[in-house]
């Protein structure tokens, strides 16, 4: 589904601030894969997502999505095939516009001069009801009035409304309170399962990294140091994972927000 071959990205090349964020990274994802990613601070997890989503172009290498070369496609074109959630719940929706208007933009159906129809509204209402947050009765309220958790759930709905080929989740529950985080995670799981969306998820929760999905990657220094799937992964514990990291990266996992339980 997704093929990254030998991608690299260096920020501020040739200056004292030079930072090799990704070095010669290759990765292949099967259709329907749900991959969790963990790694130390500055390992290149977010850079990897930015490279895939097209926030910048890579210095070298190529990116294929569903057999199509998207290496030089601008971000807004790739967005047709990708959904993305950030840690910051405010990034995915327009605060000054109503829930309905945000959903209409995300749905992306109809021509430039189409308006929100009654059928659209019914569809939005049904989908909002699935979130079980009472948002279906607040469709005409500006999104800026929602809580962080509600906004993140809405963003998730917007990202998956037209099921994308690839879903990028960048610690999307990290800024939410535990109960809301749990709920957003539940919604994530059900949406991903329902549409068989290929998913990449960065998390700092080691337990979650092993429990969710079917494959786990560990990143350090701009590359993948450990990649596990299948039965081997099922047998792993958090301690094993930490040991594997030490073995792969040659140092301890030093993420200051990591949750070991």
């Amino acid at each position: 589904m997704l093929t990254l071959s030998h991608i690299s990205k260096t920020f501020n090349p040739g200056t004292v601030n030079e930072k090799k964020a990704i070095t010669d990274l290759s990765l292949y994802l099967e259709p329907g894969d749900f991959v969790t990613i963990i790694g130390s601070n500055g390992a290149g997890k977010s850079t990897l997502f930015n490279a895939i989503a097209g926030s910048f172009y890579t210095d070298s290498g190529s990116i294929l999505l569903d057999g199509k070369d998207i290496t030089f496609q601008p971000e807004f074109r790739r967005a047709k095939m990708m959904g993305r959630l950030f840690q910051d719940p405010m990034r995915g929706s327009a605060p000054g516009m109503t829930i309905e208007e945000n959903l209409a933009l995300a749905a992306g159906s109809g021509g430039w001069f189409s308006r929100i129809t009654r059928r659209d509204k019914e569809r939005f209402r049904e989908q909002l009801a699935l979130l079980d947050m009472g948002l279906e009765d607040r469709m005409r309220q500006p999104v800026g009035l929602l809580s962080g958790g509600q906004r993140q759930a809405l963003t998730l709905l917007m990202a998956t409304m037209v099921p994308p080929k690839l879903l990028l989740l960048d610690e999307h529950t990290a800024a939410l309170d535990p109960a809301t985080a749990e709920k957003v995670l539940e919604i994530t799981k059900s949406v991903v399962e329902e549409h068989h969306i290929t998913t990449l998820m960065v998390t700092h929760n080691m337990h979650q990294a092993l429990e969710l999905g079917n494959r786990t990657l560990m990143m350090d220094g701009g590359n993948i140091v450990f990649d596990v799937a299948g039965e081997e992964r099922d047998a792993l514990t958090v301690d094993d994972l930490l040991a594997k990291f030490r073995q792969g990266a040659g140092k301890e996992l030093d993420n200051d927000r990591i949750l070991l339980s």
């Binding site: 807004f76 995915g92 327009a94 995300a106």
Partner: peptide, 12 residues
């Protein structure tokens, strides 16, 4: 309001 969101809605 939020150019990031516009980009992620596949609009330039």
């Amino acid at each position: 309001d939020n150019p990031d969101m516009v980009r992620s809605s596949s609009i330039n």
